[in-house]
Write a protein that binds this DNA or RNA. Structure first.
Lengths: 260, 260
DNA sequence: CTAGGATTCGAACGATCGTTTGAAACCACT
DNA sequence: AGTGGTTTCAAACGATCGTTCGAATCCTAG
């Protein structure tokens, strides 16, 4: 095919992927411009379109480079565990471990994401760009379905519908935790060793999630609200009072409000 | 004076706020353009700068309009509960209720956000725009500190540092749950009545979060990892194999790769 | 009815967006 | 040395970004 694949000089390619990854963490998809990426990568502006075809494909490649490995290792771990279990249901801890261990392992390998890998995972979950959301949900739907199935067997007392919700909550706690830049500042401030940080996070997060997943079923049949609204009485009176209001930039300042 | 405030025609102003809110839910701050907003609001393009001074101030006003009420009611509820408790520590359920009930109440009032209010709350937590994040963290830091203090008293066995983490997880589960558009499609599909949906969600979420908050402390002193890494062996071998690769787009194939 | 501020409007501003182009530079191989 | 393909480069493309401007229009008070 007349040289189908470029064998050389993917150094620029890699720098573009790295720059896109770094900027995506701080500014998201829409907040990152092609010029920001090429400047960070010390590459020419046209390099993105040459190597990837466009900005969208660059981000897809950058996400796939990280998340493909993640999901592959997750599924491999789940398969191994289920093979050992030989038909018996796995424990929640084991399934959670199959979700987390690959993530933490990749986060410990600088070549495959390093400490920013978990932040990337979190951001990917919450980025509002429709293009990116569609790409991710299509590409990793099978993996997610497998794990949901495993949790369903591990938690027979939880109805499938309830399980859908709790997994939703769990992934939310995970994604938000990982997406925050502040979280890693906290970790870094606590312990000096980098390698210990991941296990530290897992040790904190796992009991939280497992307890949540195994919590007794809520009583959805009862009609009265979960919290007596009588305590709301006192609050209701003050509704129109001293709430902090945004200064309403009235038209008197018709002079177009100078760039503050 | 001389007509300090615009007594008339804040209809356009309100339509702009509403349009900005609706578009922010789907596309985030960076993904929403001034022209999208004015088109949705059926207003002139210049209306944003006339009424608010700029796009950023419009979004700040739109967020403050919703979240100021929320935090005010939250604090009022917390104050009332603590007054009744008379020095004794509140229960986790009660503090959680002070966080959730105002949110659900506002979500039930179409005038103050309606069913999109919770989605707005979630999106506000995860939007990557630095400008917006700074605005929100500055404006609502006091409220967050108050609730953290209340949780610290309710959970004396949880160390302050551990509590910081668990609240972080909790807010993550909350934000991600609410931010998802799919979540509300699920709710709508389950029950016909709108009013029941909020309580339904609270009943599901509360046991999950409370169980997580009250989970036994993790053993952070132990040196060995929480999951034996020997199960990772089998996964490590397959690392460089059949991972799906993004088709590189060399300059010859100028046609963009058809979406797989 | 009219004067004057409030609001809306169409049009354009400069800046930046993602993308494209064509030629120069690089590089491996005969 | 020279050739063909790969990669980089400066420059510009049209589109869209947020913002600004001046005139037209609306609305109300005198």
């Amino acid at each position: 095919m007349t040289a189908a694949e470029p064998r050389a000089s993917q150094a620029t390619r890699d720098r573009l992927l790295k720059a896109a990854e770094s900027l995506f963490l701080d500014y998201g998809y829409d907040g990152t411009s092609a010029r920001m990426i090429t400047a960070e990568a010390r590459a020419n502006l046209a390099a993105i379109n040459y190597h990837f075809g466009g900005k969208e494909e660059l981000f897809q490649a950058m996400l796939a480079r990280r998340l493909d490995d993640l999901h592959a290792e997750r599924l491999a771990l789940l398969d191994a565990d289920e093979r050992v279990a030989a038909g018996r249901a796995l424990t929640c801890e084991r399934i959670l471990a199959a979700l987390f261990v690959p993530a933490l392992r990749l986060a410990r390998e600088p070549r495959r994401g390093g400490k920013d890998f978990l932040r990337l995972l979190g951001r990917a979950y919450v980025d509002p760009s429709p293009r990116l959301r569609e790409f991710l949900s299509e590409r990793y739907a099978p993996s997610i379905a497998r794990f949901k199935e495993a949790f369903a067997r591990a938690l027979p007392r939880i109805t499938p519908r309830e399980l859908t919700w709790r997994l939703h909550f769990m992934m939310g706690a995970l994604a938000y935790t990982l997406a925050g830049a502040d979280a890693w500042k906290l970790i870094a401030a606590l312990t000096p060793a980098d390698a210990a940080n991941d296990q530290l996070l897992l040790r904190r997060l796992a009991p939280f999630l497992i307890a949540g997943l195994q919590a007794p079923l809520p009583d959805l049949t009862s009609a009265d609200p979960i919290v007596s609204l009588e305590t709301t009485r006192q609050a209701r009176r003050r509704t129109p009072t001293n709430k902090p209001r945004v200064p309403t930039v009235p038209s008197t300042a018709k002079a177009a409000p100078r760039a503050a």
